[in-house]
Design a protein around this nucleic acid. Structure first.
Ligand code: MN
Ligand code: MN
Ligand code: MN
Ligand code: MN
Lengths: 220, 220
DNA sequence: AAACAAATTTAGACTTGTCTAAATACCGTG
DNA sequence: CACGGTATTTAGACAAGTCTAAATTTGTTT
């Protein structure tokens, strides 16, 4: 059985690997987990001994098949608990991350099955991220970063790439939620900011940083 | 902030102190936590350094005011989560203890407030134990052990003193739940077993061990 | 009061993670 | 191809808990 530290390392490596499954640098893991590179160096060696990661000195770390399954299972738990916190306990989507970070380590397969059922088998968490099933499989629907769209295109917000309180509260403050519509009105080369129309009624300007953390689907 | 180990030690000491608040022996704590006396000896010294317990070598351990508050708060969380598991997720009362043992360590005051509200501010957990409020206060209604009653007395089951799967499943198997009625029909001095009438229809014989773990209120 | 057994504490080790400081390796530039 | 800087690893310590084995203390029984 894994410690919660092990689970957090595997989750971090999974997240940093990205869709292309490249090797993850020691520094990147340290940054993600707010720890020091030397600690990570020690840890990935131990994870490699347990067969959970592939690690070659100075060349980064990738998850083994088994390590990836564990990571996906922890992510499943994290996201199901997030749904619970928002849907049942009425937390805001900006308040749930730290709590889910703890709840994801509770050990009980039956608990997660029952929670999943209680929630009505949700497909996505409150941030729009897909919830893996028991086998670790999940769908990814085609999504774009808002700043990859062109002037005139219309889109629907389907997810965010950033879970920080500050960012999510900003979105709340301008009444932008999953499902909201966003139309690109103009693009400013100088600072790469966007002028957009939100919910078909409010004009806004989004900085590049905001725009690239908004995941949207294109509306034909 | 406490580690979950610290919380489990304080909870064990609270439980073992009983209503009279006597000093708890090192061996008793070790037994309760399935650890070794030498480990407990080390730990209570550390807890004393932190001001959470009063400890005098060779004379046992008691909780400080602060230690008791922490213990009560952890017990509150444990029991609220148990209610959640039974009421919302439909677990049996024999399956919840180990899970609540983990959930009780989740850190978030807001989470417990919201959970309490979501559950409708329950007064007792699924085993009949009272749930302390935010300040650590709780009611204890007058209760008797079944084997303290006399022949002819009628009673209602209001709690159990033992949370083991085996015991609780046995109660399920004879359809004995909180609220069930139990009338004492006869008492056998030889093995201290009891003949009882359950739910006004079924005659049973309870061993002394079973009887003393059933908490009842007297029906006048 | 002496002897014994049970309870408790101490000593010394080990595991999991983490940190700082120092040593290496890797890589792009001149 | 050597140089300097960045990334990474190694060395040595430390904190929290736990264990076994050995030393003490306490309490009970002759
Ligand atoms: Mn976590
Ligand atoms: Mn999320
Ligand atoms: Mn616990
Ligand atoms: Mn209980």
């Amino acid at each position: 059985m894994q410690t919660s530290t092990t689970e957090d390392y595997l989750k971090a490596i999974f997240k940093l690997s990205g869709p292309s499954k490249e090797g993850v640098s020691t520094n990147a893991i340290a940054e993600e987990l707010s720890t020091k590179a030397s600690s990570v160096s020690d840890m990935v060696k131990k994870l490699a001994d347990k067969g959970l990661v592939n690690y070659i000195k100075y060349q980064g770390t990738t998850l083994s098949k088994e390590g990836e399954q564990i990571a996906l299972h922890v992510i499943r738990k994290h996201r199901l608990w997030e749904v619970f916190l928002v849907e049942k306990l009425k937390f805001g989507w900006d308040e749930i991350h730290e709590i889910a970070e703890q709840l994801e380590h509770i050990k009980s397969a039956k608990l997660i099955d029952k929670l999943d059922e209680h929630l009505g088998y949700p497909k996505n968490d409150p941030h729009g991220d897909p919830i893996p099933n028991k086998k670790g499989e999940f769908h990814t629907l085609k999504k774009y970063k808002l700043n990859d769209l062109s002037i005139g295109e219309k889109s629907i917000l389907i997810g965010v790439s950033e879970d920080s309180k500050d960012f999510l509260r900003y979105l709340d403050s301008i009444d932008l939620k999953l499902g909201s519509s966003i139309e690109i009105l103009d693009f400013f080369q100088f600072d790469k900011s966007l002028k957009v129309l939100v919910n078909q009624k409010t004009e806004r300007t989004f900085s590049e940083l905001v725009a690239k953390n908004l995941n949207v689907s294109k509306e034909k």
